[in-house]
Amino acid sequence: MIAAALVLAALGAWQLVVEAGWVDPLILPGPIAVAESLWEDRALLADDLRVTAGEVALGLAAAVAAGVALAVAMHLSRTVRRALRPLVIGSQAVPVPVIAPLVVLVLGFGLAPKVLLVALVCFFPVTINLLDGLSDADPDARKLLRSLDAGRWRTLWLLEAPSALPAALTGVKVAAAVAVIGAVFAEWAGADAGLGHALLTANGQLETARAFAATVLLFVLAIVAYGLCALLERRLVPWAARTDHTGA
């Protein structure tokens, strides 16, 4: 509720600044103009939203798949861990805007480069959180399973995986919130649809209100993606119910 009040207050101040004529509405359109554009271009923007949402969903799914595979491999094998850790960390030093055009060059203008770039941004928090979670299993419970002669895979399945689930889902939530960034950069590097694409063309045409409308939708997309992951977390780890962080 406080978030809504905060947004309303900011919107009110913004509208006042624009009405007072302190800024050129071509550079900073007021929230009402943005809302109008949101409504007038709804058909166009809805298509773009659908495209970007698809990229985010697929990229996130790919990131989770890759993150789980990487984390489990790194957890089970010290050699793999040593070999991959610097690469995993290094992957986050690569500026997405720099490699996005290269990825587009190699993979073309289709869906593939978008999914890859979203996944590149998203797999890191998933991998690292899951990896930490897997090794953080309760030592007493570990001892118990050892006394029961549970093997490596049984221990992973019965103890480590479930106890890592809350941490992994935190990673997924972080990933969901930043996934949108990957999608926008990928679209900027070459696309004919999507909110990033809409943002770029609207800017080019000095349709600032539409650019802002696209940004609002990106904002909403990130929040919805995060919210869905938080919902998933509640379904999957009811035993670790957090004190209420999820209320809007």
């Binding site: 007493d140 419970a141 118990l144 399973l145 029961l148 002669d149 549970a150 049984r154 019965l158 103890l159 479930p162 106890s163 689930l165 780890v237 035993w239 670790a240």
Partner: peptide, 20 residues
């Protein structure tokens, strides 16, 4: 040493699952 995500039934049967 009960695992918090398992039901009472699954916790009781943990040794059997550990054995496969």
């Amino acid at each position: 040493g009960l695992l918090p995500w398992l039901s009472a039934l699954d916790n009781a049967g943990l040794a059997l699952r550990a054995a496969g």
